[in-house]
């Protein structure tokens, strides 16, 4: 199976291990990811906060290039990229007026987008197109004994994912990790916001959000939190020391991308999954996987 891949800006920085592990997992499963040629930033929340038409236009530049490359679905790893590209796609389909305005802008750079593509999240692609059973069959390591807290993040289904999972309580990753032998803890905070860039602009709010998310995983006795978004992963992994100094806690819980743990189960080399690049060591979790 073949897809057009949109890596997103964080794939070159803090989210590098998401990109590495997503590619490694896809290779194991025979999924071909063709990177969108010369892709640009999706625009994220920043462009929407400043210029509406420009945000749709720069987002649509990626869709225009992908459409020219082929009819394959566009796949995103980052929740935010997926939300922005899927929103651009959906709003252009809903509003012919907007589609015309965006295409007038794209015409300035010799491009156009007819709206023929689907934009999808990699988690949904792996589970719905490849299938939980097919993935579990290819696993060479059973994740028996590992308690996983699946942290989906706010923009995993909200607002664009309602047709394949729940807005409030997404569950698709639960079934995947159960099939791979792990124990999935309830993790009722699974779709709550981590605060994202609020860690820079209003840290008092974001630190509380991270604290509550980490505490929930600890209360559930999780061995690791798995994420589907680079902002979530950064918040929960990178800011544990700051949460600890603010709240007097002693969190030291491994946080990984879901693709890193799936890749490990599929027998990928931990280095290819970037498991040696985590800030909170994941060695203890991996060591508990039966050989």
């Amino acid at each position: 199976m073949k897809y057009s891949y949109f890596p997103g800006c964080s794939s070159e920085a803090t989210g590098k291990t998401y990109d590495m592990s997503a590619k490694a997992v896809c290779e194991k499963l025979g999924v071909e990811l063709v990177e969108i040629d010369d892709w640009n930033c999706c625009g994220a929340t920043s462009y929407f906060s400043a210029r509406e038409l420009l945000s749709f236009a720069i987002s649509a530049r990626n869709l225009a290039i992908a459409e020219q490359m082929g009819p394959e679905d566009v796949v995103c790893t980052c929740n935010s990229c997926w939300t922005i590209l899927a929103k651009t796609n959906a709003y252009m389909a809903e509003s012919p007026h907007l589609a015309e305005e965006v295409n007038d802008a794209l015409a300035q750079i010799g491009k156009s987008y007819s709206g023929s593509l689907k934009v999808r999240h990699i988690a949904e692609v792996l589970i719905n197109d490849i299938g939980v059973e097919a993935i579990a069959e290819k696993a060479t390591r059973r994740l028996t004994g590992i308690k996983v807290a699946p942290y989906y993040g706010c923009q995993f289904t909200r607002p664009m994912g309602g047709d394949w999972d729940d807005f409030e309580f997404p569950k698709i990753l639960d079934g995947l990790f159960e099939a791979l032998g792990a124990t999935v803890v309830p993790y009722v905070m699974r779709s709550k916001c981590c605060g994202g860039t609020m860690m820079l602009t209003a840290p008092e709010g974001a630190l509380k959000m991270c604290h509550d998310l980490l505490q929930c995983a600890v209360d559930d006795q999780a061995d690791a939190i798995v994420c589907a978004c680079p902002l979530c992963e950064m918040s929960l992994e990178g800011y544990q020391p700051r949460v600890n100094s603010k709240f007097g806690t002693s969190f030291n819980i491994p946080v990984m991308y879901f693709t890193q743990l799936v890749g490990y189960a599929l027998g990928c080399d931990p280095k290819d999954l970037g498991l040696d690049k985590q800030i909170v060591s994941v060695d203890k979790v991996l060591a508990s996987v039966p050989a």
Binding site: Q155, R158, P159, E168, K192, C193, G196, T197, T201, A202
Partner: peptide
């Protein structure tokens, strides 16, 4: 408006 993180909870509810 500057405290809104774009989590879309309000929108879907």
């Amino acid at each position: 408006i500057w405290m809104c993180t774009s989590c879309y909870s309000c929108t879907v509810r």
